[in-house]
């Protein structure tokens, strides 16, 4: 047997050649067992369930924006047909009411959006409308944040955000759907 020189002994390392194989094995395992996360969505807070009928609150008609989506997926805002693309502007105009229109909200804090749909309404359309309503409020908050603090809404701290939101409270009331067009 040939004697090894001291230098050879020093340079001996752990063989890392199989490391790649191990890592590959793990990689393939994760590739197979996982799906890419796409956990995003429109966050909604449902109203709590109450057994008995609530006494009807007296809300002035002018403060309520009625949004209806029927089973034919048509959008009806305050009794008039409307395109989904125009909804955002209409909602903003209704809440802000810059010209003091007697048919629009007295104050942004009093405005309520009432959303009603049929049982036959397509979920996609419903979500689109809901999304537009949220987007309208989001834009209002953005404007208010700029006006009050000179910063975009996301850059504000919690208290400031609350203050902005209190000036334009998001109130979407969902009525029970009508029975039309059930599959």
């Amino acid at each position: 047997m040939a004697r090894r020189s001291t230098r050879e002994k020093l340079s001996q390392e752990i063989n890392a050649g199989s490391m790649a194989d191990i890592a590959f094995l793990l990689l393939i395992f994760f590739l197979v067992t996982t799906t890419i996360a796409e956990d995003k969505g429109v966050l909604v807070k449902l109203p709590p369930w109450v057994e008995e009928e609530q006494p009807e609150q007296i809300i002035k008609e002018r403060n309520v924006l009625t949004v209806l989506i029927n089973a034919q997926n048509q959008l009806l805002v305050e009794g008039e047909e409307m395109d989904i693309d125009d909804l955002r502007e209409a909602v903003k105009l209704f809440i802000k009411n810059p010209d003091n229109d007697p048919n629009k909200a007295e104050k942004p804090t009093k405005a309520i959006v009432s959303l009603q749909n049929d049982r036959g309404t397509k979920y996609e359309i419903y979500l689109q409308v809901y999304n537009e309503l949220k987007a309208a409020y989001r834009e209002l908050w953005e404007e208010e944040a700029m006006r009050l603090f000179g910063k975009p809404y996301d850059a504000l701290n919690k208290d400031q955000q609350r203050k902005v939101r209190n000036n334009f409270p998001l109130v979407i009331s969902e009525a029970d759907p009508t029975e039309f067009g059930e599959e």
Partner: peptide, 17 residues
């Protein structure tokens, strides 16, 4: 699913509430 009608979604929502 985007093509589902609101009926079943409403039932689920009611159950959640």
């Amino acid at each position: 699913h985007k093509d589902v009608t609101m009926g079943i979604v409403y039932d689920v929502k009611t159950a959640l509430r």
